[in-house]
Amino acid sequence: MQPLLEIESLGFSYEKAVTPVFSKLDLLVNEGELVLIKGDSGTGKSTLLRLICRLQAYEEGRILFRSRPVESMVPAELRRSIIYVAQIPSITDASVKDNLLFPFSFTVNRGRTEPSDKRLLEMLEQFYLQDIGLHHQAMNLSVGQQQRVALMRALLLDPEILLLDEPTSALDARSASMVFTIIEHLNASQGKTILMVTHSNYLPNNAAPVTYMLENRKLRKA
């Protein structure tokens, strides 16, 4: 397996005088892997994902994507390859279809063909959203449904790595299990590389093939 994402000796703190969030943190994610990082609240799980896709700048160490430092890449190009889906998805006041397709208007995605309505409807079914039409107002969906729409939106851009920030934390057990089943399926049948962080205790340590614990500013294999 090819290494897709390498993090070496990463150091980061929010303010210089404050205890760092990470210190000499290392991580390797290979192509096609599903990697789960577990940790308590406030240990920096979301921050780690935000640093990878450059939503925040780090001070020490290196983050490499396909052996290239992420800082050497055009931000939009990097974020087309590594898509971060936030814990609370940001949904605009428009239809489900508009929410799914607005990223295709961005310069970096213009070469991509917009999926047809038929393809979108098929995907909605795969994401257990068959009861929702493409013209349904996205703001009226439940948080669990919005979470799945946000996941679909990211997948339509066919990223090389999906960074999922607590995708199940705001959901009830049934919706959480549904979302996790989708994630497992994406990895197992489509070979999608996924790095997911969670503090959910309902997910056992063997829920993903590779699981790390984030503790004391470092990662250790669970």
């Binding site: 896709c53 939009a76 974020r79 889906v85 936030a86 609370i88 990223p103 851009l157």
Partner: peptide, 16 residues
């Protein structure tokens, strides 16, 4: 801020 970051994460440049 959340909307701006969502757009950035989906490939938008800062202007978009």
């Amino acid at each position: 801020k959340d909307l701006i970051e969502t757009k950035l994460c989906l490939g938008a440049n800062y202007r978009e």
